[in-house]
Computed example of a mutant assay.
Amino acid sequence: MRGSLSMITSVRHILLLTVKELRAIRGDKLMLALIVYVFTIATYMVSYAVSTDIKDLSTAVVDEDHSILSRRLADVVQPPLFAAPVQLDPKEAEAALKRGDHVLILSIPPNFERDLRAGRNATLELDIDATAVAHAGNGATFMTSLLSEEISRYFDLPGRGAGLVDVVFRNRYNPNLTPEWFTSVMQLMNSITILTLILSGASMIREREHGTIEHVLVMPVRPHEIVVSKILATALVILAATVLSLIFVVEFLIGVPVAGSLGLFVAGSAIYIAAIASIGLLLASFTRSMGQFGLLVIPVIIVMILLSGGMTPLESMPAWLQAVILTISPSPHFVRFTQSVLYRGSGFGLVGGEMLAMSAMSAAALAIVLLRFRKILSA
């Protein structure tokens, strides 16, 4: 009986403290503006801005052959992959490449068509501005393929696919390879990580800077009630922003088809947010101002995002690094969970392992925060 009464009292304290935290967040106009911006405008803009797809790539052509073939080769460089090519002479091409005016410059040497008809070796020169690594590499690949196919058509050579095997590609879950479908969801996940760390840590720093932590300490509440209330308030705000952003920005404005269960995604996101909020509180416990907290949290955010598998495949990392990051960070598990649920429509049976891993990390982070918080209170 006494244990049940104590539990009810503890839950009541947590709910009251959570309301206090939500009121504090409501009073922080700058934080609310940041949350709205990140989950709406930033998500939409980044989805369309961060892309390595080839579109209107700046090109130029140096035609020293002036043959029918050279004109046909220049004509295949057309939108939407490439901007309409600019005709340059060799000296202008060298200067343009140094100025960064064009990413790709195609040079067709004199007697190019004549050499090919005579059976002699002929070379096309493609100068690439490799300072734009991704666009240069993809652009060069597309350009090489276009030129090769046009030369084959011009001389009526057998096509590349005229062999005994016909290879058919089927793109699952993103048939048109639309980059915004991937970028928007990854940006949403990054926003969850960044704002959860900042919001949870700021709740602790705010108490110290405003001197209200002393008021909380004299209240008949326990350390775990204070910590859980801060995590719960952060989770409610971030989850609400995430769901609204997923429905109205990612799904409605950008047009990403969400294949899986929204309820399952919310459940997994809640577990992940609890783990990240615990980490944020832990970092805040070592600092006494927002400036110190910012300096401490920035490298943590960078490492968690870069090594989450959302920007680069986890499989491309060294095996030892994969093992470490999968053990200490919930981010790669959340990336796998989110991609599986939202893109592939997976159910609990397929993502239960990731949710279990995030739950274990959340429990471990919460336990460490409670130990640290008790030390702060005793001090």
Rank of each mutant, 00 (worst) to 15 (best):
Leu314Asp: 05
Val297Leu: 04
Gly260Glu: 11
Val303Glu: 02
Leu281Pro: 10
Ile328Cys: 06
Gly260Leu: 09
Met317Thr: 01
Leu281Val: 06
Ala274Glu: 03
Thr338Gly: 05
Leu282Ala: 12
Gln322Pro: 06
Leu264Met: 11
Met290Leu: 15
Phe265Ala: 08
Leu264Thr: 11
Ala267Asn: 03
Ala319Val: 12
Leu307Ser: 00
Thr287Phe: 08
Val303Ser: 13
Leu262Asp: 00
Leu296Lys: 06
Val335Gly: 09
Gly294Ile: 07
Pro313Trp: 06
Pro257Met: 04
Met304Thr: 12
Thr312Gln: 12
Pro257Val: 04
Pro257Trp: 03
Ala267Ser: 12
Gly280Cys: 06
Val335Asp: 02
Gly268Ser: 05
Ile305Phe: 02
Ala259Ser: 14
Val297Arg: 08
Leu264Phe: 09
Ala267Tyr: 11
Val335Trp: 01
Gln292Val: 01
Pro332Ala: 10
Val303Pro: 04
Arg288Glu: 14
Pro318His: 07
Ala274Leu: 12
Pro330His: 03
Ala319His: 12
Gln292Asn: 03
Leu314Ser: 02
Ile298Gly: 05
Gly263Arg: 13
Ser316His: 10
Thr287Trp: 07
Gly263Asn: 12
Pro330Trp: 01
Leu283Phe: 13
Ala274Gly: 14
Phe286Asn: 07
Trp320His: 10
Ile298Lys: 13
Ile301Met: 15
Phe286Asp: 09
Pro257His: 07
Val303Ile: 15
Leu321Thr: 09
Leu262Glu: 01
Gly263Trp: 13
Val297Asn: 03
Ser316Pro: 01
Phe334Lys: 11
Glu315Met: 10
Ala259Ile: 03
Pro332Asp: 06
Phe334Met: 15
Trp320Ala: 13
Val266Leu: 14
Trp320Thr: 09
Gly260Thr: 11
Thr327Tyr: 05
Leu295Trp: 07
Phe337Pro: 02
Phe293Asn: 00
Met304Cys: 14
Leu296Pro: 09
Gly268Lys: 04
Leu264Pro: 11
Val258Gly: 04
Phe265Gly: 08
Phe265Cys: 08
Ile305Thr: 04
Ile302Met: 14
Val258Thr: 08
Leu307Val: 00
Gly280Phe: 02
Thr327Arg: 11
Gly280Arg: 03
Ser269Ile: 11
Thr287Pro: 08
Ala259Cys: 03
Val256Ala: 08
Gly268Asn: 04
Phe293Gln: 02
Arg288Val: 05
Ser261Thr: 06
Thr312Ser: 14
Ser289Arg: 10
Pro330Phe: 02
Arg288Ser: 15
Pro299Ala: 00
Gly291Val: 05
Met304Glu: 14
Leu307Met: 04
Val258Gln: 03
Ser329Ile: 01
Phe337Thr: 07
Pro318Ile: 01
Ser289Asp: 13
Leu326Glu: 09
Ile276Thr: 15
Gln339Ser: 12
Ser285Gln: 09
Val300Glu: 02
Pro318Val: 00
Met317Ile: 00
Ile279Tyr: 10
Phe265Asn: 10
Phe334Cys: 12
Ala270Arg: 07
Leu321Ile: 03
Leu326Asp: 02
Gly260Asp: 09
Phe334Tyr: 15
Val258Phe: 00
Ile276Gly: 02
Ile325Tyr: 14
Leu295Met: 13
Ile273Tyr: 05
Val303His: 03
Ile271Thr: 13
Gly263Leu: 14
Pro257Cys: 06
Leu306Phe: 15
Gly310Pro: 12
Ile305Trp: 00
Leu264Arg: 12
Ser331Arg: 07
Ala319Pro: 01
Glu315Tyr: 09
His333Cys: 02
Ala259Val: 11
Arg336Phe: 00
Pro318Glu: 01
Met290Lys: 09
Ile325Pro: 07
Phe293Leu: 05
